Simulated scan of single mutants.
Amino acid sequence: MTAQTDVAAAGRRKALEQYEILDTPRESEFDEIAELAAAICEAPVALVSFVDTDRQWFKAEVGFGCRQTPLDQSICRYALGEADILEIPDTRLDPRSMHNALVVDGPKVRFYAGAVLRSSDGVALGTLCVLDVRPRTLTDLQRKTLRTLARQVVREMELRLSLRLQDVLRREIDHRVKNQLQSVASFVRLKAGRAPNEATRRALQEVSHRISAAALLHEELYSLDSGDEVALDRYMDKLGRFVAASAPEGVALVVEVDPVRVTPAQAASVAAIVNEFVTNAFKHAFPTGRAGRILVVGRVGQGELVVRMSDDGVGCDGPLASGGIGMRIMSAAAEKVAGTLAFDTAGPGVALTLAMPLVRPAIPARLGRSGG
């Protein structure tokens, strides 16, 4: 093996590691391409083959019966240097294949045609190839189809790589946003401690609390394997424990949410509404050391999430004021997710119900993801 060949093999191995394709399970997206190649080329065998440093490994195979062979049995390795397709009409007459064990022994391969799987960086990774037990050639249509299907294999791999890179970027952004929000919240808390009067101190504490709640959402998003769904039960459990830390003495907060995955926007809206309701209850529902309980219950049914928040505090006379910042925050959060809010002040205490449609059917949270 020459130094140039060594460099090419190392580059190919690095690219294959980046695609995370080797030794993965069979998948219909690749199996169907191999099946179509076999059918169009009228060949009994078709392979989506990747050439590793010491073997060739098959992501998909039709009619071959195994997932890999030693590198010395690979005809595909000779195709890697081709610009287009390597076609060997009779393997017994070609010096690259005439001594191959698959030709001499084994299945007695007599025909080979492989279209190179080339990455967007120009690295030859392997081939989409067809084999036959009789000498032959492909038609022009079959060659064109083989080229097209080979490009489709690479497109599928490139798409998956792009999605993984986007997820890594999203996770890094969530991590940085969480850290920045936590820093801002700490700064605001410091200012609150030095505030000259009680009203300013309370206002700054509320701002710090809201910022910390937003940071908690980004912490949850960072922990996800996928960036598009949040396990709401797990997130609300964390939020509940965070909010409960500032509860007045003798006031308990209980959060019970059905296992369900929602979008980040939905999770943020639910969290904003629950946070406003609970912190408002802490301030007004339990005066002069009164003990009590705040209950947050989320239930999923018929494509809808219903979250009922209630306290057993002193309640209020008449309708709630609608001009406060807390009420505006809750109304905006509900509107963002096409939700509706309904207050109940009949007592005991005050209750608020949020009903919102789920963007997609409810998906139970994965095992082990719903706990705190």
Rank of each mutant, 00 (worst) to 15 (best):
S183K: 12
V184L: 13
V184Q: 06
V184I: 14
A185H: 01
S186F: 03
S186A: 12
V188E: 02
V188F: 05
L190K: 10
K191G: 15
A192M: 11
A192N: 09
G193L: 12
R194F: 10
R194N: 13
A195L: 10
P196M: 05
N197Q: 09
R201S: 12
R201L: 08
R202G: 03
A203E: 15
H209D: 08
S212I: 03
A213G: 07
A215I: 04
L216W: 00
L217S: 06
E220Q: 15
E220D: 15
Y222N: 08
S223V: 08
S223I: 07
L224I: 10
D225M: 13
S226Q: 13
S226W: 09
S226H: 15
G227L: 09
G227N: 09
E229K: 04
R234Y: 10
M236Q: 14
D237S: 14
L239F: 01
G240C: 06
R241Q: 14
F242E: 12
V243Y: 06
A244D: 08
A244C: 04
A244G: 08
A245I: 07
S246G: 10
S246D: 14
V251D: 02
A252G: 12
A252S: 15
L253P: 02
V254R: 10
V254P: 00
V257N: 09
V257I: 15
V260C: 10
V260Q: 02
R261V: 01
V262L: 01
V262H: 00
T263V: 07
A265C: 04
A267P: 04
A267H: 03
A268T: 06
V270Q: 02
V270H: 08
A271I: 03
V274T: 11
E276F: 07
F277L: 05
A281S: 15
F282R: 06
K283C: 00
F286T: 04
F286S: 01
T288H: 13
T288F: 09
R290I: 08
A291C: 08
G292D: 01
G292K: 05
R293D: 10
I294C: 04
V300F: 00
G301E: 13
G301H: 10
G301R: 09
G301N: 07
G303L: 05
G303P: 03
L305S: 07
R308W: 00
R308N: 10
R308T: 15
D312T: 02
D317M: 07
G318Q: 03
P319I: 02
S322E: 15
G324H: 08
I325A: 14
R328H: 07
